[in-house]
């Protein structure tokens, strides 16, 4: 998985495959982005090809961090397998997902 972070706008773009092995960089990124001041955090998933259950679990951690810091978390543009996973697990109702 690759992550691009734009701290000023609170935008994160993820690409590739988001799996168990990405645990540490993702957690670091979450801590960092929510520590910085700002309003909404947007995670752009439109270039993410694959997510496994560990990846979904990490999104839940981000959601929890957002709640704690009273920030809005938006997941943008899931496609393909990622979108299907969101449907099967109803994550599209747990998160604010923008097409």
């Amino acid at each position: 998985m690759q992550i691009q972070i734009d701290r000023t706008s609170g935008q994160i773009a993820m690409s590739g495959e988001f799996t168990f092995t990405d645990h540490i960089p993702f957690k670091q990124m979450v801590t960092e982005i929510f520590a910085a001041p700002g309003k909404a955090v947007v995670i752009d998933l439109s270039r993410l090809d694959f997510i496994d259950s560990a990846g979904l679990g990490m999104l839940l951690l981000a959601r929890d961090e957002a709640k704690k810091t009273h920030r809005e978390l938006i997941l943008r543009g899931p496609i393909g397998q990622v979108k299907r996973m969101f449907t099967v697990t109803k994550f599209n109702t747990l998160f604010k997902v923008e097409e």
């Binding site: 449907t87 099967v88 697990t89 109803k90 747990l94």
Partner: peptide, 10 residues
């Protein structure tokens, strides 16, 4: 169809 929240989330 098997959609539903995983156990332990909500």
């Amino acid at each position: 169809d098997s959609s539903g929240f995983p156990l332990g989330v909500e």
